[in-house]
Simulated assay, not measured.
Amino acid sequence: MHNIHHKLHDKVAVVTGGSGVLCSAMAFELARQGVKIAIVNRTLKNGQLIADQIQEAGGQAIAVEGDVLNRASLEKAREQILAHFSKVDILINGAGGNHPDAITSEETYSGKEVDQSFFELDESGFSNVFASNFTGTFLTSQVFGKALLEQKSPVILNVSSMSAFSPMTKVPAYSAAKSAINNFTMWMAVHFAKSNLRVNAIAPGFFLTNQNHDLLIDAEGNHTARSQKILNNTPMKRFGIPKDLLGTMLWLVDESYSSFVTGITVPVDGGFMAYSGV
């Protein structure tokens, strides 16, 4: 259980992709700290489930429909949130993910016939995955940015990945987008530094989520070969669990702890990035 961060009380956080395993954990913890939560999801009912659970636990939360690739949809979401909570202090850009259209069948090119070699990757599938991770972060930051700048110590927290530093095999669009997130986090941090808006990112190592479950766990409930590779390269020899992210998140969003920290991406990875494999 994390200590209470009194400076966070009564702040308002917008969490995109807030119904996902990791972002919902962040939303729950912020609500526990007295932050008012707006969950923004493409599918309203998914966000509503999380908002309801936060309220049942005594927090304040609303769910708002919003597509991070549609400016008009985001602007509508912003108006609803401002009408309800009257301000925005924290933006967590959690929406993103992957899609089979942007994944190669094999880790390295063999020249053999496979379902989806590099040369069969669908251009629109590739572009969509890149956009949902990167362009969605850009658009959401743009749409909520002016509201953030009206507050005393606003924060944007982007969500990166281990794949940003060293691309995972099979997922070129996702990896490229997350690498762009790291760069854009630095760019925005510099751009808004004098305006007091801090911009950082969190890079989870390997966490079991609904999205990657079938890649990492087989039908019998055992680790897949890919899982085994990950664990072999994670010195702590386990997958992350959602609460592993929360201390880093609280540090970065609480200005009294990190007022001079901007433009960084923090790995939370059980040592994965530090390990050379030897």
Rank of each mutant, 00 (worst) to 15 (best):
A225Y: 02
A219T: 10
L231R: 09
S195F: 05
L231F: 07
F207E: 06
T224G: 05
V199I: 12
R226W: 11
K194Q: 14
A193M: 15
T234Q: 05
R198D: 05
I241S: 03
P235S: 06
F206S: 14
P204S: 10
A189R: 08
Q228E: 15
L215Q: 08
G240C: 12
I230C: 01
F192L: 13
N212V: 03
M236D: 04
V199P: 04
A203R: 07
T234S: 02
P235H: 06
A203T: 07
M188K: 04
T224S: 08
N222A: 03
D214E: 14
I202N: 03
A201T: 10
N183H: 14
L215S: 06
N222M: 00
H223M: 00
F192A: 09
A225M: 05
F239I: 04
N232D: 15
H213C: 03
N210D: 15
M186I: 10
T209L: 08
S195E: 15
F207N: 04
I241L: 06
L231S: 10
N183Q: 15
K229L: 13
M188T: 04
L208E: 02
L208C: 02
F206I: 11
F206H: 13
I241V: 15
N222W: 00
R238D: 10
S227Y: 07
F192C: 09
H213Q: 14
R226L: 13
V190K: 13
R198G: 04
T185S: 13
M186T: 14
A225N: 08
K194T: 12
L215N: 05
P235D: 07
N183P: 00
H191R: 15
L231H: 09
P235E: 08
N212Q: 09
N212Y: 03
L215A: 07
K229S: 12
H223C: 01
N233W: 07
V199Q: 06
N183I: 12
K229C: 04
N183S: 15
S195W: 04
R238V: 07
K194W: 00
M188F: 03
A225H: 08
N212C: 03
A203N: 12
S195C: 06
L197C: 07
A193V: 15
A219D: 15
F207M: 14
N233G: 09
I202D: 02
R226F: 13
I217N: 03
W187Y: 13
H191E: 15
L197T: 07
S227V: 05
L208Y: 02
N200S: 11
I202R: 09
H223P: 07
M188P: 01
T185V: 13
L197Y: 11
N196I: 05
T224Q: 10
W187G: 11
V190S: 05
F192K: 11
